[in-house]
Design a protein around this nucleic acid. Sequence first.
DNA 1: GGCTATTGCTATCCGTGATAGCCGTCTTAA
DNA 2: TTAAGACGGCTATCACGGATAGCAATAGCC
Lengths: 146, 146
Amino acid sequence: MALTNALESRLGYQLRRASAVMMADLSRELAELDLRPAEVTTLQVIADNADCSQTEVGQALAIKRANMVPIISRLMERGLVERRRIDGRSHALTLTEHGRMVSKDAQERIDRHEARFAELLGAADMAMLFRCLPVIRSAREGDAEF
Amino acid sequence: MALTNALESRLGYQLRRASAVMMADLSRELAELDLRPAEVTTLQVIADNADCSQTEVGQALAIKRANMVPIISRLMERGLVERRRIDGRSHALTLTEHGRMVSKDAQERIDRHEARFAELLGAADMAMLFRCLPVIRSAREGDAEF
DNA sequence: GGCTATTGCTATCCGTGATAGCCGTCTTAA
DNA sequence: TTAAGACGGCTATCACGGATAGCAATAGCC
């Protein structure tokens, strides 16, 4: 028998569950690429911002400096990302030719994945979500870095 | 300089970020209780469904059987949950007196946490979110258990 | 009575993310 | 000009949610 669950009326809970469902779907869609969501995400940011630094990518994605390291390392090992010394400290990140191809493939997969949900929800609700979700984020994303 | 980020127009991405913000806020609110979100959540389900089994709680929360074990163990160690043998295999879970008190405290903390976001969004948007988020979940939560 | 499903459990792994602290480098202000 | 501090990348380690595979005991059913 299904249990009563007062949590259903909690925004945070609904968000977690919904997010988990989409993450699972995304992972499935990306499985063949052997790339994790965080890696693909990083790839997209570098694609859109050639010559950005690791820390900058991290800031854009709310990933701490320290956690960017293994992500970039793996993308470099895979020959998807290259970096060029700018400074004694910072590197400029760019996609390799192969990286651009993989990024494009990933893009398409993500588009398919997103389309499934967009269809489910309809344009009006999608618009509403894109209005509301950033409001939630804005509430307290001041935790990032500092 | 802020980077371009095409991911901002991805539902999955927005959901992840928004969910992360709320999770962080929740953890902060629950820190003094020394209970993780998953533990509190479990506590609430047991509070609402006396004599349910471990597996049932897991099903309600999309937590696998195996992952319920350490959660319940910890809640029992802390003297918040009791269980009574029903079967050779299953137990009936109930809150102890202390468990009820802690659960009530947690409830209030969660209410405060939720209220902060409800205020930010307004009633109309909250209502829409409670309509849309379950739709996303319903898309593919058939992964659970099997 | 035997087969199968169920329940709880162990052990182990993955992915995201956090924290603390090191080191070399750049910047800037006295 | 040099000393102090900010910055960028890095290591190591941990927390947390969640997944998987497989085991043992038990219950339900033909």
